[in-house]
């Protein structure tokens, strides 16, 4: 698909038409992939020889963490598109993605805590990765709160996209700061979180399917929520015009 044709979907009406056509397919394939991945992971994978059955949490934890970060990246890109080209759909897509990304962050944090309890003997450790996710969660909170607080749509879109840009820089800074900080506290990491390393094929394939499921689910949710936001925006515009005319 060339870039030119991609901009056509920036037209709200066109976006809604396309979404109406595409969404059922995406949604059902998301449900199917998620089902296959999670059922495969839960029922048909062996236990890890060290971690026992807790390794099954990986099929939720890693995809959720992946989407938590990707959702923010998507918001960053759509915010940039809004600032540069001022397509309303783009700003609204960022707004639609934020709560989904926040839920993914929460899932990653909670499953991580539940996993950490039997493995490390603690629900929470101020490990760099855990801490960065907590900070990411705070950024999501602030971003969503700012959208909710501002009444004018265009002002809200402008302010939140600048916040998203600045926030991205600071989130990245925090990531490195946190790395540095924990190193400074405990000389050397006591917990290794590198689950991705040396994951055997038996765990890897269902994990891939689960990740694909989470990606599809995210796309489906964002399409649906963006469509909702477009309609809500049109509704506010119509109401405003009504009030002016009356």
């Amino acid at each position: 698909m060339s870039l030119n044709s991609l901009w056509e979907y920036a037209n709200p009406k066109k976006f809604i038409q396309t979404t109406d056509r595409v969404l059922p397919w995406v949604a059902w394939s998301a449900a199917l992939t998620l089902l296959v991945g999670l059922v495969w992971g839960f029922f048909f994978t062996p236990d890890d020889y060290r971690q026992g059955s807790t390794v099954k949490i990986i099929y939720l934890h890693v995809p959720a963490a992946l989407m938590a970060i990707n959702a923010w990246l998507m918001m960053l890109v759509t915010s940039l598109v809004w600032i540069v080209r001022r397509h309303h759909v783009s700003a609204l897509a960022a707004r639609a993605a934020a709560p989904v990304g926040m839920i993914m962050t929460v899932i990653a944090l909670l499953t991580g805590a539940i996993w950490g309890q039997p493995m490390w003997g603690t629900w929470w450790a101020w490990d760099p990765r855990l801490t960065s996710f907590l900070i990411l969660f705070l950024f999501y909170l602030g971003y969503i709160a700012l959208w909710e607080a501002i009444e004018n749509d265009d002002t809200a879109a402008d302010l939140t996209s600048i916040l998203c840009l600045v926030g991205s820089v600071f989130a990245l800074l925090s990531r490195y700061a946190v790395n540095f900080w924990n190193q400074g506290l405990h000389q050397g990491a006591s917990l290794s979180l590198d689950k991705e390393e040396n994951v055997a094929d038996v765990f890897w394939y269902p994990l891939l399917v689960a990740m694909a499921g989470f990606v599809l689910l995210f796309i489906a949710l964002v399409l649906m929520r963006t469509r909702t936001e477009i309609r809500a925006r049109r509704m506010r515009a119509l109401l405003a015009r009504e009030r002016m005319g009356a």
Partner: peptide, 13 residues
């Protein structure tokens, strides 16, 4: 012995 952990994380998610 990890049934609680696995089941609760699936339930929560």
């Amino acid at each position: 012995k990890y049934a609680d952990a696995v089941l609760s994380s699936y339930a929560v998610s």
